[in-house]
Amino acid sequence: MKLAYWPGCVSRGFTPELHGAMAAVAPKLGLELVELDRANCCGAGFISEHNQELADTLNARTFALAQGVDGAAGMVNICSTCQGAQSECQERLDADAAYRAHINEHLEPEGLEYERGGAWWNKNLLWLLVEEIGLDALRERVVRPLEGLRVGPFYGCYIVRPTRRLGYELYPDRDKYLEWVIEACGAAPVKYAGSHKCCGFPIVTTNRETSLRQAGRHMADALDAGADCVVTPCPLCHLNLDLQQPESQAFVERDLGIPVLHLPQLIGLALGLDFKELGLHRHVVKTDEVQAKVAALAAA
């Protein structure tokens, strides 16, 4: 399947292991990714907070670039926040023809135009896995079922709310996909209170205490529920849950130390890719125990 690929900013900035893991996993899933290297940041909600017309223009540009990729089935992203911020703009662009025409005027000098709807879509890797690739196809490709690995799902707000904007009418189970994918990889999904809550990242610069208390509490809940690790389709969540974990544990007054995997890393493990290729050494919270568990599976 050929896809226009929007990797986002963070996967090429502070979570390079995510970008690398996706590059390693894509061919194994039969995906041909055409990276949108001219596309711009989605704004992560902050550009639309500043100026909605600007955010809609910037994302319409990304959509237009994606629509220009010959033979692509659609656009894929690897970031819940990109998905949510882009869906928000797309909702406005699709709702009103005059508004869309106005935004398209800003794209015209570059020879670009966003065309509404039709069969075109923008999906996070998680949605793509279930809806376009299919869980059966994923299961068939699994060469190393992650038996015994207990994984806590962490979705990221932008991919679960608001349901009306995020296509839940058509796909009502999108808030269960992560559990399904964990199962398809042979691992065991762990139920805990924080799986669909907020990591706190958007306010880490404006209210550090509220932000890191959220992050710390969810990781503590996952640990208490018996998770070996957490998996997330959002690199921004990853930053608050992994990079900030040594700080956030102070706000919940306990030791944490739970690894936080990116979605393509978990899939890559099940597809038999090696740890280094998946960037598992590039985490703040060491992934050694997860690696040891998976290595033991391979040996068995």
């Binding site: 909605q52 709702a95 508004y99």
Partner: peptide, 20 residues
């Protein structure tokens, strides 16, 4: 500053008419 509030304008595109 231009802001499209869908609560107010609704989804008007069914008729392909702008109410921006």
């Amino acid at each position: 500053r231009l802001e499209l509030n869908l609560y107010i304008v609704g989804d008007s595109d069914a008729e392909e008419e702008g109410t921006m």
